[in-house]
Simulated assay, not measured.
Amino acid sequence: SIPLLGALEYLLELLSEWFSPTLGEKLLEHIKYWLELDANAPVAPGQFKKSPKDVKLIAAIVNLFHLLPKLRDGKAELKPNEKRLLPYDFISPLVRDIMAIESTMPPESVYSEVNSLYIVPLTKFLAKYPKESVEFFLARIDQPDYFARFIRIIQLPEGNELLKTLCANSSKLMKIIFNVAGESDDELDELATQGVETNSDDKFSYYNGLKLLSTMA
Rank of each mutant, 00 (worst) to 15 (best):
residue 1 S to N: 14
residue 2 I to P: 08
residue 5 L to T: 07
residue 6 G to F: 14
residue 8 L to A: 12
residue 8 L to P: 01
residue 12 L to T: 11
residue 15 L to G: 04
residue 16 S to A: 09
residue 18 W to L: 13
residue 22 T to E: 10
residue 25 E to G: 01
residue 27 L to Q: 06
residue 29 E to H: 01
residue 32 K to G: 01
residue 37 L to I: 03
residue 39 A to L: 01
residue 47 Q to L: 00
residue 49 K to T: 11
residue 51 S to D: 02
residue 51 S to M: 06
residue 52 P to N: 02
residue 53 K to I: 11
residue 53 K to C: 00
residue 54 D to N: 10
residue 57 L to C: 13
residue 58 I to Y: 12
residue 59 A to E: 05
residue 63 N to D: 15
residue 63 N to S: 15
residue 65 F to A: 00
residue 68 L to G: 09
residue 70 K to I: 13
residue 71 L to D: 01
residue 71 L to V: 13
residue 72 R to S: 12
residue 75 K to N: 15
residue 77 E to I: 14
residue 79 K to R: 15
residue 81 N to M: 12
residue 84 R to M: 06
residue 101 I to A: 09
residue 101 I to H: 02
residue 107 P to N: 08
residue 109 S to L: 08
residue 111 Y to C: 05
residue 112 S to C: 10
residue 113 E to Q: 14
residue 113 E to F: 11
residue 114 V to N: 13
residue 114 V to L: 15
residue 121 P to C: 03
residue 123 T to E: 01
residue 124 K to P: 05
residue 124 K to N: 10
residue 125 F to P: 00
residue 128 K to I: 03
residue 130 P to G: 08
residue 133 S to E: 05
residue 135 E to A: 14
residue 141 I to D: 08
residue 143 Q to T: 14
residue 144 P to V: 00
residue 144 P to W: 06
residue 151 I to S: 06
residue 159 G to R: 04
residue 161 E to N: 02
residue 162 L to R: 00
residue 168 A to F: 12
residue 169 N to Q: 13
residue 169 N to W: 10
residue 172 K to G: 07
residue 175 K to E: 12
residue 176 I to V: 10
residue 178 F to N: 11
residue 178 F to V: 04
residue 184 S to E: 15
residue 184 S to T: 11
residue 202 D to N: 08
residue 202 D to L: 10
residue 205 S to Q: 07
residue 205 S to C: 02
residue 207 Y to H: 02
residue 209 G to E: 06
residue 212 L to T: 04
residue 213 L to D: 00
residue 215 T to C: 12
residue 217 A to T: 14
